[in-house]
Computed example of a mutant assay.
Amino acid sequence: MIFELGRILQDHSDYFSFLRLVNYITFRAIMAALSAAVFMFVFSRPFIFEMHRLGFQDQDRDTGLAVHDKSGTPTMGGLLIIGAIVFSLGLWGNWTSPFLLYPLIAMLWHGAMGVWDDYAKIRRGSGNRGMSERMKLLLQSLFSAGFAWAMVGPLSPMGPEMATRIYVPFIKYPLFNLHPVLYGFFIFLFVIFVSNAVNLTDGLDGLAITPSLFVIGVLGVFAYVEGNTIYSSYLFYPYLRGAGELTVFAAACAGAGLGFLWYNAYPAQIFMGDTGSLAIGGTMAVISVLLKQEFLFPILGGLFVAEALTSQIQDKIGVRWLGRRIFYRAPLHHDLQHKGIAETKVVIRLWIISGLLALLALATLKIR
């Protein structure tokens, strides 16, 4: 709203010349972050109270650990995060840009899935009885297939020449052009994996949101570089016209995430639930694809990758194939808890690891 209004008014009178600020990605990104954070601080307490009143509270899940029961804490905090991001982008985003629309659609789609999952758990009174795994995979597959088709087809904001190029960290030039069908299948799997990885990480107070801030913040830096002709040329990155809008999107996510962390830090007053974790994961995946940074994610989102792999190895290989556990507990954060490390120490140490991985990912901007 402010972005569009500023573009209209600045050309009609010198009195509104200051509105030329909205033409700068950096200004809009800062304001988007601040707007989202203010939204969170204004609406979080009423939202928490309302969740208590409605009985929308976290349900106990059997992890096999003698830890503090977190049932009774309000959930669906992801609705707050999504609301803050949409509000902020409504003020500062360019809604004609596909670089804004694609991650927004991903966030809303996966957020709606999360609402269904969280509500099912509340209604059935069990943290293990939400949406069925088959239904969740079906809904994720529908979005991933549609997004993959858009990225390799005429709806790709990168154009046909750039759409199927494969870029990897530390190498200046694209390795090769992948066949559209193969690249589409890769996108399909990538989006499903990342959205589930963040979902699996969300198990302790504040654990998922801070690494998410690191990942989205770094992706915002990459968006700024790739959307700028000078910086992208200097650093040998593909120039993606309009990709700077993802910087504004990432900033809105960061502001919302920081505001949420205020209430989600130990002891948590609210959980994001699957509403938040699925929405954040789907958004991360889509932004990574739009920036051609899919192969950066194993570095940048290394914590999420480790959480997902430990969970899948335990379930698919250990329990189903071998008939025994490979890890004491899965995913990773529960294994660390099983070894006697306090919850807060587990969370902070994993934050530190995630921060270091984010710095390594940033280093790839120059080390090419």
Results as ranks from 00 to 15, higher is better:
Glu50Gly: 00
Gly355Val: 03
Met107Pro: 11
Leu108Trp: 03
Lys121Glu: 06
Ala37Tyr: 13
Leu235Trp: 04
Phe249Gly: 03
Leu350Gln: 05
Gly6Glu: 08
Asn128Met: 15
Ser233Thr: 15
Met76Ala: 03
Leu200Cys: 02
Leu54Cys: 00
Ile85Cys: 01
Gly146Val: 10
Leu182Gln: 09
Ser354Glu: 00
Phe170His: 05
His52Glu: 12
Phe147Val: 13
Leu303Arg: 05
Val215Glu: 01
Gly259Gln: 05
Ser233Asp: 13
Ala37Leu: 13
Leu359Cys: 10
Gln314Gly: 00
Ile348Thr: 12
Gly257Trp: 06
Leu258Phe: 14
Ala285Thr: 04
Phe170Val: 12
Met151Leu: 09
Ala29Ile: 07
Phe143Tyr: 08
Asn23Ala: 14
Ile317Asp: 04
Gly217Thr: 04
Pro154Gly: 15
Gly244Asn: 11
Gly127His: 14
Val198Gln: 02
Lys345Ile: 14
Phe18Ala: 15
Ala308Asn: 10
Ile209Trp: 02
Leu137Trp: 07
Ser144Lys: 09
Asn94Lys: 15
Leu80Trp: 05
Glu50Phe: 12
Leu182Pro: 02
Arg7Asn: 15
Ala84His: 08
Leu300Gly: 00
His333Glu: 07
Trp321Pro: 01
Gly111Pro: 06
Ile270Pro: 11
Tyr102Ala: 08
Leu219Ala: 03
Phe271Cys: 09
His338Thr: 02
Asp335Lys: 04
Leu34Pro: 01
Phe297Val: 15
Phe27Lys: 06
Leu362Asn: 08
His12Pro: 02
Asp60Gly: 11
Gly323Ile: 06
Leu235Val: 04
Leu189Thr: 13
Gln314Phe: 00
Val152Ser: 03
Gly242Asn: 14
Met162Thr: 06
Arg7Ser: 09
Pro98Ala: 12
Lys316Tyr: 05
Lys339Trp: 02
Ile352Arg: 09
Val115Arg: 03
Ile48Asn: 01
Phe214Asp: 03
Asp315Trp: 05
Leu142Tyr: 12
Val286Met: 12
Met272Ala: 07
Leu21Pro: 01
Ile82Pro: 12
Asp205Asn: 11
Phe99Asn: 14
Gly55Asn: 14
Ala251Asp: 05
Leu296Ser: 08
Arg325Asn: 01
Leu175His: 01
Leu356Ile: 07
Val22Thr: 12
Gly6Val: 06
His334Leu: 04
Cys253Trp: 15
Ala265Lys: 13
Gln59Arg: 15
Gly146Lys: 07
Leu219Asp: 10
Met162Arg: 08
Arg320Trp: 07
Arg349Gln: 03
Lys345Leu: 14
Gly127Cys: 07
Ala252His: 03
Gly242Gln: 13
Arg45Met: 10
Phe297Glu: 13
Gly55Phe: 10
Ala32Pro: 05
Val86Phe: 02
Ser212Ala: 13
Arg134Ala: 09
Leu54Val: 04
Val319Leu: 11
Leu19Asn: 06
Gly146Trp: 08
Gln57Cys: 14
Leu65Phe: 06
Val319Gln: 13
Ala197Pro: 00
Phe271Ile: 11
Leu79Ala: 11
Leu300Val: 00
Gln140Asn: 15
Leu175Ile: 05
Gln57Ser: 10
Thr275Phe: 02
Val42Phe: 11
Pro154Ile: 09
Phe188Gly: 10
Ala285Leu: 07
Thr26Cys: 07
